[in-house]
């Protein structure tokens, strides 16, 4: 599988060291439950959903999530984070089919 489209949004855009900011992670994913049938072939579409998401900041784990199939297609995960110096925010997510992906964003606090 090719790389999935994903996005990390930080609000507000300009932040200082020590500030608490809102972090949203969005990913394009079908989140198939394994209960839906294909209308034409009448076959059950196999389940494919994200089951693990991990937010880490400079190697330190901030938030881990265990996900089931009840989340929407193209899910969004929003939480808060305390800025603690320059570094990378990395989001690692795993599929129930074993697909592992990663997305990271540089964090540069000003002032």
């Amino acid at each position: 599988m090719g790389k999935r489209k994903s996005l990390i949004k930080i609000k507000p855009k300009k932040f200082k060291d020590g500030e608490i900011v809102k972090v949203s992670f969005m990913v394009m994913h079908p989140m198939e439950t394994g209960m839906r049938k294909d209308k034409k072939t009448k076959e059950i579409i196999p389940a494919k959903y994200i089951n693990k998401v991990k937010f880490s900041y400079n190697g330190k784990v901030i938030t881990t999530m265990t996900v089931w199939e009840s989340l929407s297609t193209n899910p969004v995960f929003t939480t808060y984070m305390k800025i603690n110096g320059k570094g990378n925010l990395t989001v690692t997510y795993t599929d129930n089919t074993g697909e592992v992906n990663e997305h990271s964003k540089k964090i540069k606090p000003k002032g």
Binding site: S70, V76, F77
Partner: peptide, 19 residues
Amino acid sequence: IDVHLTPANGKAMFATRIK
């Protein structure tokens, strides 16, 4: 979903979209 938070989050909030 189960979300495991740590003190590094700064604020206990989580938002998502469900079916």
